[in-house]
Design a protein around this nucleic acid. Sequence first.
DNA 1: TCTGGGGTCCTAGGACCC
DNA 2: TCTGGGGTCCTAGGACCC
Length: 412
Amino acid sequence: MRTIMHVDMNAYFASVEQAANPLLRGRPIAVGGGTGGKRSVVAACSYEAKARGIKNAMPAWEALRICPDLVIVAGDMNKYIYTSAQIMAQLRTYTPQVEVFSIDEAFLDLTETAGRCGGPVAIAKRVKQWIREKFRLTCSIGIGPNKLLAKLAGELKKPDGLNELWPPDIPGKIEQIKVSELCGVGRKLEEYLAQMGIRTFGDLHRAPRAKLVKRFGAVWGDHLWQMGQGKDDAPVRPSAYEEAAKSMGHSYTLPGFTTDQAEVKGYLLRLAEQVGRRLRKENCKGNVVHVSLGFGNYQFWGKQRKVEDYLDDGYEIYRVAERLTLDAQRFALRNRPTPNAVRFVGVTVSGLIHDLDQISLLPQKEDNKKVLRAVDAINDRYGEFTVERAAIMATVIEHKSGYVPSRSFRGH
DNA sequence: TCTGGGGTCCTAGGACCC
DNA sequence: TCTGGGGTCCTAGGACCC
Protein backbone atom coordinates (compact mmCIF):
# COMPACT_ATOMS: atom_id res chain seq x y z
CA MET A 1 0.00 0.00 0.00
CA ARG A 2 1.23 3.49 -0.84
CA THR A 3 1.62 6.34 1.64
CA ILE A 4 0.35 9.59 0.14
CA MET A 5 0.31 12.98 1.79
CA HIS A 6 -1.71 16.00 0.73
CA VAL A 7 -0.66 19.48 1.85
CA ASP A 8 -3.19 22.26 1.45
CA MET A 9 -2.43 25.82 2.52
CA ASN A 10 -5.28 27.41 4.48
CA ALA A 11 -6.87 30.53 2.94
CA TYR A 12 -3.58 30.90 1.12
CA PHE A 13 -3.55 34.33 -0.55
CA ALA A 14 -5.36 35.96 2.37
CA SER A 15 -3.03 34.36 4.91
CA VAL A 16 0.05 35.51 3.02
CA GLU A 17 -1.29 39.06 3.11
CA GLN A 18 -2.05 38.82 6.84
CA ALA A 19 1.42 37.45 7.49
CA ALA A 20 2.96 40.34 5.56
CA ASN A 21 0.87 43.05 7.18
CA PRO A 22 0.12 42.90 10.94
CA LEU A 23 -2.72 45.40 10.51
CA LEU A 24 -4.65 42.80 8.54
CA ARG A 25 -4.37 40.08 11.17
CA GLY A 26 -7.56 39.13 12.97
CA ARG A 27 -9.64 41.06 10.45
CA PRO A 28 -11.99 39.88 7.72
CA ILE A 29 -10.03 40.37 4.52
CA ALA A 30 -10.45 39.27 0.94
CA VAL A 31 -7.97 39.17 -1.90
CA GLY A 32 -9.54 40.48 -5.09
CA GLY A 33 -9.43 38.56 -8.33
CA GLY A 34 -10.70 38.91 -11.86
CA THR A 35 -10.35 42.18 -13.69
CA GLY A 36 -10.87 44.37 -10.66
CA GLY A 37 -13.59 46.91 -10.02
CA LYS A 38 -17.26 46.06 -9.89
CA ARG A 39 -16.89 42.69 -11.55
CA SER A 40 -14.08 41.43 -9.40
CA VAL A 41 -14.62 38.38 -7.26
CA VAL A 42 -13.18 37.12 -4.01
CA ALA A 43 -10.12 35.08 -4.97
CA ALA A 44 -9.41 34.12 -1.38
CA CYS A 45 -10.64 35.25 2.01
CA SER A 46 -9.40 35.02 5.59
CA TYR A 47 -11.05 32.78 8.15
CA GLU A 48 -12.41 35.88 9.85
CA ALA A 49 -14.17 36.70 6.56
CA LYS A 50 -15.38 33.12 6.13
CA ALA A 51 -16.95 33.34 9.58
CA ARG A 52 -18.93 36.32 8.32
CA GLY A 53 -20.30 34.39 5.36
CA ILE A 54 -17.81 35.39 2.68
CA LYS A 55 -17.05 32.66 0.16
CA ASN A 56 -14.51 32.25 -2.59
CA ALA A 57 -15.66 33.39 -6.04
CA MET A 58 -18.29 35.66 -4.48
CA PRO A 59 -18.68 38.98 -6.35
CA ALA A 60 -16.95 41.80 -4.47
CA TRP A 61 -20.07 43.94 -4.25
CA GLU A 62 -21.98 41.12 -2.61
CA ALA A 63 -19.17 40.39 -0.18
CA LEU A 64 -19.18 44.05 0.90
CA ARG A 65 -22.93 43.97 1.37
CA ILE A 66 -22.69 40.98 3.70
CA CYS A 67 -19.63 42.28 5.51
CA PRO A 68 -19.24 46.07 5.19
CA ASP A 69 -15.96 46.21 7.12
CA LEU A 70 -14.36 43.63 4.82
CA VAL A 71 -10.90 44.76 3.76
CA ILE A 72 -10.30 44.03 0.10
CA VAL A 73 -6.62 43.68 -0.71
CA ALA A 74 -5.19 43.77 -4.21
CA GLY A 75 -3.50 40.46 -4.92
CA ASP A 76 0.24 40.25 -5.41
CA MET A 77 0.80 37.15 -7.47
CA ASN A 78 4.59 37.37 -7.27
CA LYS A 79 4.47 37.14 -3.50
CA TYR A 80 2.27 34.03 -3.65
CA ILE A 81 4.42 32.33 -6.28
CA TYR A 82 7.61 33.12 -4.35
CA THR A 83 6.22 31.74 -1.09
CA SER A 84 4.74 28.71 -2.81
CA ALA A 85 8.01 27.86 -4.53
CA GLN A 86 9.84 27.81 -1.21
CA ILE A 87 7.22 25.61 0.40
CA MET A 88 7.33 23.17 -2.52
CA ALA A 89 11.13 23.08 -2.31
CA GLN A 90 10.90 22.24 1.38
CA LEU A 91 8.46 19.42 0.63
CA ARG A 92 10.96 17.98 -1.85
CA THR A 93 13.44 17.47 0.97
CA TYR A 94 11.24 14.56 2.10
CA THR A 95 10.82 12.94 -1.32
CA PRO A 96 11.39 13.85 -4.95
CA GLN A 97 7.88 12.53 -5.59
CA VAL A 98 6.08 15.86 -5.15
CA GLU A 99 3.18 16.79 -7.40
CA VAL A 100 2.43 20.51 -7.37
CA PHE A 101 -1.34 20.36 -7.71
CA SER A 102 -1.92 24.12 -7.63
CA ILE A 103 -0.20 27.13 -6.19
CA ASP A 104 -1.28 26.14 -2.68
CA GLU A 105 -1.65 22.36 -2.85
CA ALA A 106 0.71 19.44 -3.28
CA PHE A 107 0.71 15.64 -3.12
CA LEU A 108 3.70 13.71 -1.83
CA ASP A 109 4.32 10.02 -2.38
CA LEU A 110 6.08 9.00 0.81
CA THR A 111 5.89 5.26 0.20
CA GLU A 112 9.65 4.90 -0.17
CA THR A 113 10.87 7.59 2.18
CA ALA A 114 8.49 7.84 5.15
CA GLY A 115 10.28 5.07 7.06
CA ARG A 116 13.56 6.94 7.06
CA CYS A 117 11.94 10.09 8.44
CA GLY A 118 10.03 8.57 11.33
CA GLY A 119 6.77 7.95 9.47
CA PRO A 120 4.28 10.19 7.67
CA VAL A 121 2.80 11.76 10.78
CA ALA A 122 6.20 12.90 12.00
CA ILE A 123 6.89 14.36 8.56
CA ALA A 124 3.56 16.15 8.55
CA LYS A 125 4.27 17.70 11.95
CA ARG A 126 7.67 18.90 10.80
CA VAL A 127 6.23 20.37 7.60
CA LYS A 128 3.55 22.23 9.52
CA GLN A 129 6.07 23.60 11.99
CA TRP A 130 8.45 24.74 9.26
CA ILE A 131 5.73 26.54 7.34
CA ARG A 132 4.44 28.20 10.50
CA GLU A 133 7.84 29.41 11.65
CA LYS A 134 9.08 30.48 8.25
CA PHE A 135 5.94 32.15 6.87
CA ARG A 136 3.39 32.44 9.73
CA LEU A 137 1.07 30.28 7.63
CA THR A 138 -0.99 27.23 8.50
CA CYS A 139 -1.87 24.27 6.35
CA SER A 140 -4.01 21.16 6.51
CA ILE A 141 -2.32 17.84 5.91
CA GLY A 142 -4.06 14.60 5.01
CA ILE A 143 -2.46 11.16 4.87
CA GLY A 144 -3.81 8.04 3.20
CA PRO A 145 -3.13 5.20 0.73
CA ASN A 146 -3.97 7.33 -2.32
CA LYS A 147 -4.59 10.89 -3.47
CA LEU A 148 -8.36 10.65 -3.01
CA LEU A 149 -8.24 9.65 0.66
CA ALA A 150 -5.28 11.88 1.48
CA LYS A 151 -7.11 14.92 0.13
CA LEU A 152 -10.35 13.96 1.86
CA ALA A 153 -8.52 13.42 5.15
CA GLY A 154 -7.14 16.93 5.05
CA GLU A 155 -10.48 18.30 3.96
CA LEU A 156 -12.06 16.99 7.17
CA LYS A 157 -9.71 18.93 9.45
CA LYS A 158 -9.50 22.56 8.49
CA PRO A 159 -7.80 24.80 9.29
CA ASP A 160 -4.40 23.73 10.58
CA GLY A 161 -5.36 20.06 10.65
CA LEU A 162 -3.53 16.77 10.49
CA ASN A 163 -5.60 13.71 9.69
CA GLU A 164 -5.29 10.19 8.37
CA LEU A 165 -7.75 8.10 6.39
CA TRP A 166 -7.14 4.42 5.64
CA PRO A 167 -9.29 1.69 4.05
CA PRO A 168 -10.73 0.47 7.39
CA ASP A 169 -12.21 3.98 7.78
CA ILE A 170 -14.32 3.40 4.64
CA PRO A 171 -17.10 4.35 4.71
CA GLY A 172 -17.33 4.80 8.52
CA LYS A 173 -15.45 8.02 9.18
CA ILE A 174 -16.58 9.64 5.95
CA GLU A 175 -20.08 8.15 5.66
CA GLN A 176 -21.72 11.57 5.96
CA ILE A 177 -19.42 13.55 3.66
CA LYS A 178 -21.32 15.10 0.77
CA VAL A 179 -20.43 13.73 -2.67
CA SER A 180 -19.71 17.27 -3.82
CA GLU A 181 -16.63 17.22 -1.57
CA LEU A 182 -15.06 14.70 -3.92
CA CYS A 183 -12.67 16.07 -6.50
CA GLY A 184 -14.49 15.77 -9.82
CA VAL A 185 -18.05 16.01 -8.52
CA GLY A 186 -19.35 19.45 -9.36
CA ARG A 187 -22.76 21.08 -9.32
CA LYS A 188 -24.27 19.07 -12.15
CA LEU A 189 -22.96 15.69 -11.13
CA GLU A 190 -24.11 16.35 -7.57
CA GLU A 191 -27.57 17.05 -8.95
CA TYR A 192 -27.67 13.89 -11.09
CA LEU A 193 -26.42 11.75 -8.23
CA ALA A 194 -29.05 13.24 -5.93
CA GLN A 195 -31.71 12.17 -8.43
CA MET A 196 -30.43 8.63 -7.94
CA GLY A 197 -30.64 9.06 -4.18
CA ILE A 198 -26.88 9.39 -3.81
CA ARG A 199 -26.03 12.34 -1.60
CA THR A 200 -23.29 11.24 0.76
CA PHE A 201 -20.10 9.29 0.40
CA GLY A 202 -21.87 6.41 2.17
CA ASP A 203 -24.60 6.42 -0.50
CA LEU A 204 -21.95 6.32 -3.21
CA HIS A 205 -20.08 3.55 -1.43
CA ARG A 206 -23.18 1.36 -1.59
CA ALA A 207 -24.20 2.23 -5.15
CA PRO A 208 -23.85 -0.70 -7.57
CA ARG A 209 -21.15 -0.28 -10.17
CA ALA A 210 -23.49 -1.28 -13.02
CA LYS A 211 -25.97 1.43 -12.05
CA LEU A 212 -23.31 4.14 -12.11
CA VAL A 213 -21.84 2.92 -15.40
CA LYS A 214 -25.28 2.83 -16.98
CA ARG A 215 -26.02 6.39 -15.92
CA PHE A 216 -22.65 8.09 -16.43
CA GLY A 217 -20.89 5.98 -19.03
CA ALA A 218 -17.94 3.64 -18.76
CA VAL A 219 -15.36 6.28 -17.93
CA TRP A 220 -17.09 8.42 -15.34
CA GLY A 221 -19.38 5.72 -14.03
CA ASP A 222 -16.46 3.50 -13.17
CA HIS A 223 -14.46 6.41 -11.81
CA LEU A 224 -17.31 7.33 -9.48
CA TRP A 225 -17.63 3.76 -8.30
CA GLN A 226 -13.89 3.55 -7.62
CA MET A 227 -14.13 6.76 -5.60
CA GLY A 228 -17.01 5.33 -3.61
CA GLN A 229 -14.79 2.39 -2.68
CA GLY A 230 -12.04 4.77 -1.58
CA LYS A 231 -9.89 3.56 -4.46
CA ASP A 232 -7.67 5.75 -6.61
CA ASP A 233 -4.81 4.46 -8.75
CA ALA A 234 -3.69 7.88 -9.97
CA PRO A 235 0.04 8.22 -9.40
CA VAL A 236 1.71 11.21 -7.80
CA ARG A 237 3.35 12.88 -10.76
CA PRO A 238 6.39 15.02 -10.01
CA SER A 239 6.32 18.36 -11.77
CA ALA A 240 9.27 17.37 -13.94
CA TYR A 241 6.81 15.29 -15.93
CA GLU A 242 4.44 18.20 -16.27
CA GLU A 243 2.80 18.09 -19.65
CA ALA A 244 3.08 20.89 -22.13
CA ALA A 245 0.04 23.15 -22.38
CA LYS A 246 -2.61 22.07 -24.89
CA SER A 247 -4.29 25.40 -25.33
CA MET A 248 -3.78 29.04 -24.51
CA GLY A 249 -6.46 31.67 -24.37
CA HIS A 250 -7.61 34.95 -22.98
CA SER A 251 -11.06 36.27 -22.34
CA TYR A 252 -12.58 39.48 -21.16
CA THR A 253 -15.90 40.45 -19.67
CA LEU A 254 -16.95 43.89 -20.80
CA PRO A 255 -17.97 46.48 -18.22
CA GLY A 256 -21.38 46.56 -19.90
CA PHE A 257 -23.19 45.40 -23.00
CA THR A 258 -22.19 46.68 -26.38
CA THR A 259 -23.78 46.51 -29.81
CA ASP A 260 -20.81 48.17 -31.46
CA GLN A 261 -19.20 45.70 -33.87
CA ALA A 262 -16.02 47.74 -34.06
CA GLU A 263 -15.64 47.64 -30.31
CA VAL A 264 -16.10 43.89 -30.23
CA LYS A 265 -13.51 43.48 -32.96
CA GLY A 266 -11.16 45.71 -31.02
CA TYR A 267 -11.38 43.40 -28.01
CA LEU A 268 -11.00 40.39 -30.28
CA LEU A 269 -7.80 41.80 -31.73
CA ARG A 270 -6.45 42.76 -28.35
CA LEU A 271 -7.08 39.29 -26.94
CA ALA A 272 -5.64 37.63 -30.04
CA GLU A 273 -2.50 39.73 -29.65
CA GLN A 274 -2.20 38.68 -26.02
CA VAL A 275 -2.52 35.03 -27.01
CA GLY A 276 0.02 35.42 -29.81
CA ARG A 277 2.49 37.06 -27.48
CA ARG A 278 2.20 34.23 -25.01
CA LEU A 279 2.57 31.63 -27.74
CA ARG A 280 5.79 33.26 -28.88
CA LYS A 281 7.04 33.58 -25.34
CA GLU A 282 6.46 29.87 -24.73
CA ASN A 283 7.95 29.07 -28.09
CA CYS A 284 4.93 27.31 -29.51
CA LYS A 285 2.25 27.68 -32.16
CA GLY A 286 -1.26 26.36 -32.60
CA ASN A 287 -3.50 25.52 -35.53
CA VAL A 288 -6.98 25.69 -34.00
CA VAL A 289 -8.60 29.01 -33.21
CA HIS A 290 -11.58 29.20 -30.86
CA VAL A 291 -13.65 32.26 -30.35
CA SER A 292 -16.50 32.72 -27.92
CA LEU A 293 -18.93 35.52 -27.28
CA GLY A 294 -21.31 35.97 -24.40
CA PHE A 295 -24.62 37.71 -24.96
CA GLY A 296 -25.78 37.95 -21.37
CA ASN A 297 -28.02 35.65 -19.41
CA TYR A 298 -25.45 32.86 -19.76
CA GLN A 299 -26.03 32.71 -23.49
CA PHE A 300 -22.68 31.77 -24.85
CA TRP A 301 -21.82 31.23 -28.47
CA GLY A 302 -18.61 29.55 -29.58
CA LYS A 303 -16.95 28.40 -32.74
CA GLN A 304 -13.62 26.86 -33.56
CA ARG A 305 -11.71 26.20 -36.74
CA LYS A 306 -8.64 24.27 -37.63
CA VAL A 307 -6.42 26.17 -40.02
CA GLU A 308 -3.65 25.08 -42.38
CA ASP A 309 -0.77 26.93 -40.73
CA TYR A 310 0.40 26.90 -37.18
CA LEU A 311 -0.02 30.42 -35.83
CA ASP A 312 1.65 32.59 -33.24
CA ASP A 313 0.98 35.97 -34.78
CA GLY A 314 -1.81 37.78 -32.98
CA TYR A 315 -3.08 39.47 -36.10
CA GLU A 316 -3.37 36.19 -37.99
CA ILE A 317 -5.17 34.65 -35.03
CA TYR A 318 -7.45 37.66 -35.02
CA ARG A 319 -8.27 37.29 -38.71
CA VAL A 320 -9.43 33.69 -38.19
CA ALA A 321 -11.37 34.63 -35.06
CA GLU A 322 -12.99 37.56 -36.78
CA ARG A 323 -14.18 35.40 -39.68
CA LEU A 324 -15.61 32.87 -37.24
CA THR A 325 -17.73 35.51 -35.55
CA LEU A 326 -19.73 36.13 -38.69
CA ASP A 327 -22.02 33.31 -37.59
CA ALA A 328 -22.41 34.85 -34.19
CA GLN A 329 -24.57 37.61 -35.57
CA ARG A 330 -27.14 35.08 -36.68
CA PHE A 331 -27.01 33.33 -33.32
CA ALA A 332 -27.48 36.60 -31.50
CA LEU A 333 -30.40 37.59 -33.68
CA ARG A 334 -32.08 34.27 -32.99
CA ASN A 335 -31.46 34.09 -29.26
CA ARG A 336 -31.44 37.60 -27.95
CA PRO A 337 -34.15 40.25 -27.81
CA THR A 338 -31.41 42.85 -28.31
CA PRO A 339 -29.32 41.80 -31.28
CA ASN A 340 -25.57 41.61 -30.83
CA ALA A 341 -25.51 42.85 -27.26
CA VAL A 342 -22.12 41.39 -26.43
CA ARG A 343 -20.90 41.09 -22.86
CA PHE A 344 -18.04 38.64 -23.08
CA VAL A 345 -15.27 37.95 -25.60
CA GLY A 346 -12.75 35.10 -25.59
CA VAL A 347 -10.01 33.89 -27.93
CA THR A 348 -8.18 30.58 -27.47
CA VAL A 349 -5.63 28.75 -29.60
CA SER A 350 -5.19 24.98 -29.31
CA GLY A 351 -3.56 22.24 -31.33
CA LEU A 352 -0.28 23.45 -29.92
CA ILE A 353 3.15 22.32 -30.99
CA HIS A 354 6.08 23.12 -28.76
CA ASP A 355 9.84 23.70 -28.94
CA LEU A 356 9.74 25.24 -32.36
CA ASP A 357 13.43 26.08 -32.52
CA GLN A 358 14.23 22.41 -32.81
CA ILE A 359 11.48 21.54 -35.23
CA SER A 360 11.51 24.77 -37.22
CA LEU A 361 8.69 23.93 -39.56
CA LEU A 362 6.62 26.39 -41.51
CA PRO A 363 9.16 29.21 -41.69
CA GLN A 364 7.71 32.63 -41.22
CA LYS A 365 8.77 35.62 -43.26
CA GLU A 366 11.97 36.76 -41.64
CA ASP A 367 11.28 40.47 -41.38
CA ASN A 368 7.81 39.86 -39.98
CA LYS A 369 9.41 37.66 -37.33
CA LYS A 370 11.86 40.41 -36.47
CA VAL A 371 9.05 42.92 -35.95
CA LEU A 372 7.24 40.55 -33.63
CA ARG A 373 10.40 39.91 -31.64
CA ALA A 374 11.05 43.64 -31.30
CA VAL A 375 7.51 44.27 -30.05
CA ASP A 376 7.83 41.38 -27.62
CA ALA A 377 11.09 42.76 -26.29
CA ILE A 378 9.57 46.17 -25.66
CA ASN A 379 6.49 44.74 -24.01
CA ASP A 380 8.56 42.40 -21.89
CA ARG A 381 10.54 45.34 -20.66
CA TYR A 382 7.92 48.04 -20.25
CA GLY A 383 4.75 46.06 -19.69
CA GLU A 384 1.94 44.59 -21.71
CA PHE A 385 0.64 46.74 -24.58
CA THR A 386 3.26 49.46 -24.44
CA VAL A 387 3.43 48.82 -28.17
CA GLU A 388 0.34 47.60 -29.96
CA ARG A 389 -1.27 47.70 -33.32
CA ALA A 390 -3.02 50.89 -34.33
CA ALA A 391 -6.44 49.23 -34.41
CA ILE A 392 -6.23 48.40 -30.73
CA MET A 393 -5.19 51.91 -29.85
CA ALA A 394 -8.22 53.27 -31.64
CA THR A 395 -10.51 51.07 -29.59
CA VAL A 396 -8.92 52.08 -26.33
CA ILE A 397 -8.96 55.77 -27.06
CA GLU A 398 -12.51 55.66 -28.27
CA HIS A 399 -13.98 53.71 -25.41
CA LYS A 400 -11.65 54.46 -22.51
CA SER A 401 -12.81 51.15 -21.16
CA GLY A 402 -10.27 50.92 -18.38
CA TYR A 403 -9.41 47.49 -19.64
CA VAL A 404 -6.59 46.00 -17.61
CA PRO A 405 -5.21 42.74 -18.94
CA SER A 406 -4.48 40.43 -16.06
CA ARG A 407 -3.49 36.87 -15.56
CA SER A 408 -5.96 35.22 -13.28
CA PHE A 409 -5.30 33.80 -9.90
CA ARG A 410 -7.29 32.10 -7.26
CA GLY A 411 -6.53 30.15 -4.17
CA HIS A 412 -8.46 28.16 -1.63
C1' DT B 1 -27.71 36.22 -7.16
C1' DC B 2 -25.13 36.01 -11.65
C1' DT B 3 -20.85 36.96 -16.51
C1' DG B 4 -13.82 36.32 -13.31
C1' DG B 5 -10.24 34.11 -15.93
C1' DG B 6 -7.52 30.16 -17.57
C1' DG B 7 -7.41 25.59 -18.33
C1' DT B 8 -8.48 20.00 -19.14
C1' DC B 9 -11.16 16.05 -20.41
C1' DC B 10 -15.11 13.55 -22.37
C1' DT B 11 -19.02 12.58 -25.58
C1' DA B 12 -21.50 12.72 -29.74
C1' DG B 13 -22.47 13.40 -34.44
C1' DG B 14 -21.21 14.28 -39.20
C1' DA B 15 -17.96 13.86 -43.09
C1' DC B 16 -14.96 11.12 -45.41
C1' DC B 17 -12.17 7.09 -46.73
C1' DC B 18 -11.38 2.20 -47.49
C1' DT C 1 -26.97 0.37 -57.61
C1' DC C 2 -27.49 -0.12 -52.85
C1' DT C 3 -25.58 -1.26 -48.45
C1' DG C 4 -22.04 -2.43 -44.58
C1' DG C 5 -18.66 -1.86 -41.12
C1' DG C 6 -14.54 0.24 -39.28
C1' DG C 7 -11.45 3.98 -38.70
C1' DT C 8 -10.06 8.89 -38.44
C1' DC C 9 -10.69 13.73 -38.37
C1' DC C 10 -13.30 17.76 -37.23
C1' DT C 11 -16.60 20.56 -34.65
C1' DA C 12 -19.85 21.50 -30.91
C1' DG C 13 -20.97 21.39 -26.32
C1' DG C 14 -20.93 20.09 -21.47
C1' DA C 15 -18.76 19.54 -16.97
C1' DC C 16 -15.25 20.30 -13.92
C1' DC C 17 -10.99 22.19 -11.62
C1' DC C 18 -8.13 25.89 -9.34
